[in-house]
Amino acid sequence: MSYPLVKITNSTNYIASGKVSYMSIFCSDDNYTVTPNTTWQAGSRGVCLLTEISATLQTPNGNIQATPYTSSGTSYSEFAIIQTGTNSFAVTRIVNMAENEIPEDYVEPTVQQK
């Protein structure tokens, strides 16, 4: 068993670089660089839980540190770097629509069941 490879989509207009940190000392952290509007993908992951993704963006106003994504240890694999303000950025998890789909056999509760 292994977790899906980490993917980081850079939705900004700036080059971003940073580090993907994993929980175990047996897992090697990944350094990455991703150009604007492209996606970086890790080469391997195995059974390593992710604890942090940092990002620094190279803007005309200098390098700006994004708010990192942090976790006590997650198997999630899809993330994005987004611009949250004029000179502020964040790394966030991408939530797939599949996680939010209603099952085919779902029945809305009646008023009495609510």
Rank of each mutant, 00 (worst) to 15 (best):
C27A: 05
G18P: 00
K19F: 00
E52G: 06
Y76H: 06
Y76M: 03
S28G: 03
G46H: 10
Q83A: 05
T38K: 13
V20I: 10
T67H: 10
G43L: 04
Q83M: 07
G18L: 00
V47A: 02
A66L: 13
N63T: 14
A66N: 07
M23E: 10
A16W: 11
Y69C: 12
Y32E: 04
T74V: 08
T86Y: 03
G73I: 09
S24A: 15
T56S: 13
I53T: 07
N13W: 03
L50I: 14
L50G: 09
S75Y: 13
S75P: 11
T84W: 07
N63A: 15
L50T: 14
G18S: 00
T35V: 07
S44P: 01
I82K: 15
S28Y: 00
Y22G: 07
C48P: 02
G46N: 10
T35Y: 14
K19I: 05
G73S: 06
L57W: 10
L49D: 11
R45Q: 00
E52S: 15
T35C: 04
T39H: 12
T35D: 13
Y14A: 01
T70F: 09
T59N: 01
V20W: 04
G46P: 08
T59R: 06
C48Y: 04
D29Y: 08
T35N: 13
Q83K: 14
Q65I: 14
T67N: 09
G46M: 06
T38S: 13
S77W: 04
T51F: 09
P68N: 02
S71M: 10
P36I: 01
T38N: 08
T86W: 07
I64F: 04
Q83D: 07
N37A: 04
I82H: 14
Y32D: 01
A66I: 11
G85M: 07
Q58V: 13
E78S: 15
L57H: 11
G73K: 03
Q65M: 15
G73M: 01
P36H: 05
S21H: 00
E78V: 05
N61W: 07
S24E: 12
Q83F: 02
I64L: 11
S54R: 05
V20P: 06
S24N: 09
S54P: 06
Q58L: 06
A80K: 15
V47W: 05
A42T: 12
Q83I: 03
T59H: 07
T59I: 05
T86I: 03
T56M: 08
K19G: 00
I15N: 10
Q58T: 11
Y22E: 04
Q41R: 13
T33S: 12
S72E: 09
N37F: 01
W40Y: 07
T35G: 05
G18F: 02
N13P: 02
D29V: 09
C48M: 04
T74A: 10
V20S: 03
Q83N: 02
R45S: 06
S71R: 12
A42Q: 03
T74W: 12
I15H: 07
N31Y: 01
V47N: 13
T84H: 09
D29Q: 03
G43R: 12
Q41P: 08
T59L: 04
K19C: 00
W40M: 11
P60I: 03
N63F: 11
N63R: 14
S72P: 04
D29K: 01
G73T: 06
G46E: 09
S28C: 01
